[in-house]
C-alpha cells in the first residue's frame, strides 16, 4: 500500500511517498514556511517516482501542534485529496513524529516544537520496541516552565525538535542528563508520518475526514472583548 505523507507543522514543509517496506520518495524544504509548495512538490515526487496519484491508498497528515498557517494548508490539502481520491486519512501529531524519529534510545524523549511568542509545544515519550509511547499530555509552556517540568523527571533525557534547539541555552540548565538530538531531527518528517501511519491503515484504524483538524493547545475558545465595537455600532 502506498501512503502519502504531508507535514507542515513547522517552517519545514515535508512531503513523502512510502509503503510498509520503504520510503519511495521524500522532499523536505527547510528554512522558511513554504506551504504553497506542498502541491508542486507532490507533483514532482509523483513524476520522479513514476507513480500516479491514483495509486496512493492512504494519506498521513501532520496535525500539529505547530504553525497555524502551515497546518491549515497541509491539512486542507490532505483532506481534499482524501475526499477526491476516496481514500482513508490518518492524522499524526508533530510531536509524535519527532519522538518517533529518535526512538532508538533508552532515555526519556522530550519532543519540543517552537510555538512562537515565547512558548513551546511539548510532550514526553518513552521508547518501546518498534515505536514510542507518550507519557504526558500535549502541553504548551514557556521555556522556563518546560525546564521546571523536566527538572522533576527522573533519569536521562533526550530533547528533540526546533523548540529544543531554539531554547537550547535555557534547557541546558538541566545539566548533562539532558542531551540534544541532532539538528537534522529538528522538524517532523513526512516520511516518519508515513511510517507511523502504515500500521493504522493496515488495521483500518482511520480518522474520520472531518475529525482531522489542527491541534490547538492554547486556550482559544474565549470571545474577543468587543466593548468598543458594540459601542461603535450604537453610535
Amino acid at each position: 500500500m502506498i501512503v502519502l505523507g504531508i507535514e507542515t507543522s513547522t517552517p519545514q514543509t515535508s512531503v513523502a511517498l512510502g509503503t510498509e517496506q520503504e520510503t519511495l520518495g521524500k522532499v523536505s524544504l527547510a528554512g522558511a514556511a513554504r506551504q504553497e509548495f506542498v502541491t508542486p512538490v507532490l507533483e514532482q515526487l509523483l513524476t520522479w517516482t513514476g507513480l500516479e496519484l491514483g495509486q496512493v491508498g492512504g494519506i498521513a497528515v501532520g496535525v500539529g501542534p505547530g504553525l497555524f498557517t502551515g497546518l491549515r494548508v497541509g491539512i486542507e490539502t490532505a483532506k481534499s485529496l482524501a475526499q477526491v481520491l476516496s481514500i482513508p486519512i490518518v492524522g499524526i501529531t508533530s510531536l509524535d513524529a519527532l519522538a518517533f524519529s529518535v526512538r532508538h534510545t533508552h532515555k526519556l524523549i522530550v519532543a519540543v516544537i517552537d510555538g512562537r511568542r515565547g512558548e513551546t509545544f511539548y510532550a514526553v515519550y518513552r521508547a518501546l520496541p518498534g515505536g514510542v509511547v507518550r507519557g504526558s499530555d500535549y502541553e504548551v509552556a514557556t521555556p522556563d516552565h518546560l525546564c521546571a517540568e523536566l527538572e522533576i523527571l527522573p533519569g536521562e533525557l533526550l530533547a528533540v525538535g526546533n523548540g529544543a534547539i531554539l531554547y537550547r541555552d535555557q534547557l541546558a540548565e538541566l545539566g548533562s542528563r539532558l542531551e540534544f538530538a541532532s539538528s537534522i531531527r529538528a522538524h517532523p518528517e513526512a516520511a516518519a508520518l508515513v511510517e507511523l501511519a502504515v500500521p493504522r491503515f493496515l488495521r483500518e484504524d482511520y480518522d474520520r475526514l472531518y475529525d482531522v483538524t489542527p491541534m490547538y493547545l492554547r486556550r482559544s475558545d474565549a470571545e474577543i472583548a468587543w466593548d468598543r465595537r458594540e459601542r461603535g455600532a450604537g453610535a
Binding site: T69, S220, E223
Partner: peptide, 12 residues
Amino acid sequence: RIQDVMDLGLDE
C-alpha cells in the same frame, strides 16, 4: 473569538 485571531497566524 480569540481562536479566529489565532487562525490568522499573525506571528507567521
